[in-house]
Design a protein around this nucleic acid. Structure first.
Ligand code: FES
Ligand code: FES
Lengths: 146, 146
DNA sequence: TTATAAAAGGACATTGATGTCCTTTTATAA
DNA sequence: TTATAAAAGGACATCAATGTCCTTTTATAA
């Protein structure tokens, strides 16, 4: 399971993408409200994302968050990697110090399949691909009452 | 990913099963050492397990932990349920308040497959099935140097 | 019957994830 | 040029998971 911070990060990035498509650059307050996260905490997460160049930002009047052309097609994996690290893709499901094909724990064969399946998802899906589903009305960004 | 407590619990139960097959009832110290967990913390987890009747114990000289006949074929799911709850089998992978087939988040279709796959594993595998693999030498319980 | 060994249980400590608040920096509008 | 609005950043607060310590209860061996 992803950490709360990572979930916030992904939803924030998707919202920024959607807004960017409308030629807008949302700010912390607007983003926090949309993703239903505390504003100050959201600010920290956005800071991490921009510091790691997953997204860009502008200070001052009319500022906000946005993607530049280098940052299109950001995979979920890259976000996870930056926000919580990628331990979950290597970890032994049974709790051994390292997962090891040649000296497996009794869950290894089955666990590896789900773990690798999740890895495949986050390497394939991008902020853009998720945003497109939402734009097309095939999925939702939040459960806020209209 | 399972919590550390759950991992300790599962490995502890497997060790108890293996020892029971040798007509022995291990104590906290022996269990903690085998699963490479702090002794006092292990004691707490074992307490939770016995309080919830996943395992039995005897106090006093010659005491220790063991399974009785009602407790054979304990699924990993039951252990997870008792130790950390089963939120991870229901949670939305994108962080929405609830996962909902009819109003899906943009990760829903793919995530559900992985989540349900893991659920299937923990509903199928039991403390006994894992222990058997170890007994047969097909898998290991720890990475302790011999 | 008593000493001992073991689990049970209560209280507290540490740590990392999450969350808050306030100050500093910077870009823009007036 | 100055006031303002916005992100960046530092310091601190809270909470749950993890971990520790000590006392109480209980079963058994001597
Ligand atoms: S060794 Fe446990 S999952 Fe690979
Ligand atoms: S709604 Fe997100 S996983 Fe089902």
């Amino acid at each position: 399971m992803l950490s709360k911070s990572t979930e916030y990060a992904i939803r924030a990035l998707v919202f920024v993408q959607l807004k960017n498509w409308e030629q807008k650059r949302p700010g912390v307050g607007e983003i926090a409200k949309e993703i239903e996260a505390p504003e100050a905490y959201t600010a920290k997460i956005l800071q991490t994302l921009t510091k790691n160049k997953l997204m860009d930002s502008m200070k001052g009047r009319g500022g906000g968050f946005f993607f530049n052309d280098n940052q299109s097609n950001l995979t979920l994996y890259e976000v996870i990697h930056v926000v919580e690290g990628d331990a979950c893709f290597h970890k032994c499901g049974f709790g051994l110090k390292q997962c090891n094909n040649d000296n497996p724990c009794p869950l290894h064969e089955q666990y590896k399949i789900v773990r690798d399946g999740f890895f495949e998802i986050v390497k394939t899906e991008t902020i853009r691909s998720l945003s497109e589903k939402i734009k097309q009305g095939e999925a939702v960004l939040n459960r806020l009452k209209k």
